[in-house]
Simulated scan of single mutants.
Amino acid sequence: MAIEWQDNLSIGVLEIDIQHKLLFDKFNSFLDAYQSDGNTEGTLRMFWFLEAYAVTHFKEEEKLMQQLAFPAFHAHRQKHGAFIENVNQLKERLKVEGLSQALVTTMTNFITSWLVQHISTEDRAIGTFVNKNAGRV
């Protein structure tokens, strides 16, 4: 169930690429915690950590976009907000339903597709902008 970082997801901005790779690692740690021993507490700690890391990454990415006057900043920021809202909904389900294979599968499908789609389109636009304006920024 792990998701593998692929070089084609690199957007060409080193600090963001490093953070994206770490997001993949943190997500895989969450999956490993769930699959290894079924330790609910450890799995939940990894989920909260993943959530906190995503929020921290979003703040760093948004700070960079603001510094560069990235034209699609507000739309991009809204997508980050939608991700956080979806994660909050998953957290509520987790509190009500408890940790189950069905919920982990839902989380995995959502986070995997979001990460790959968001990085390959939205974040790639940041990389394109940065590299196109490298001499002027």
Rank of each mutant, 00 (worst) to 15 (best):
A2P: 15
I3R: 00
I3L: 06
E4K: 10
E4H: 11
Q6L: 08
N8F: 14
N8V: 11
S10W: 00
S10G: 09
I11A: 00
I11S: 00
L14T: 14
E15C: 04
E15D: 04
I16W: 04
I16Q: 05
D17W: 02
Q19T: 03
Q19P: 11
H20I: 04
H20W: 05
H20G: 08
L22E: 14
L22T: 15
L23K: 13
F24P: 13
F27H: 09
Y34F: 15
Y34E: 02
Q35D: 15
S36P: 14
S36N: 15
T40R: 10
E41N: 08
E41L: 10
G42E: 09
T43R: 03
M46W: 05
F47R: 01
W48F: 11
F49V: 04
L50G: 08
E51Y: 11
A52Y: 07
Y53A: 04
A54R: 00
V55Q: 06
V55L: 01
K59A: 10
E60D: 08
E61S: 03
E61H: 03
E62L: 02
K63V: 11
L64F: 12
L64H: 06
L64M: 11
Q66F: 08
Q67R: 15
Q67G: 13
A69H: 15
A69C: 09
F70C: 01
P71W: 02
A72L: 13
A75Y: 13
H76D: 04
H76M: 00
H76R: 03
R77P: 07
R77H: 13
Q78D: 08
Q78R: 08
Q78L: 10
K79G: 15
K79W: 01
H80Y: 07
H80W: 06
H80V: 12
G81S: 09
A82E: 12
I84V: 15
N86S: 12
N86F: 13
V87S: 02
V87I: 13
N88L: 06
Q89C: 06
Q89K: 14
K91L: 02
E92M: 05
E92F: 10
K95L: 13
V96H: 01
E97F: 12
E97R: 12
Q101E: 11
A102Q: 10
V104C: 08
V104Y: 11
T105E: 08
T105V: 05
T106I: 06
T106Q: 08
F110Q: 01
I111T: 06
S113R: 12
W114L: 00
V116Y: 03
V116Q: 07
H118D: 07
I119C: 05
I119K: 00
S120V: 05
S120E: 08
T121C: 05
E122A: 15
R124N: 10
R124L: 14
R124V: 09
A125I: 03
V130Y: 08
K132I: 07
A134I: 14
A134N: 12
G135Y: 07
R136G: 09
V137W: 02
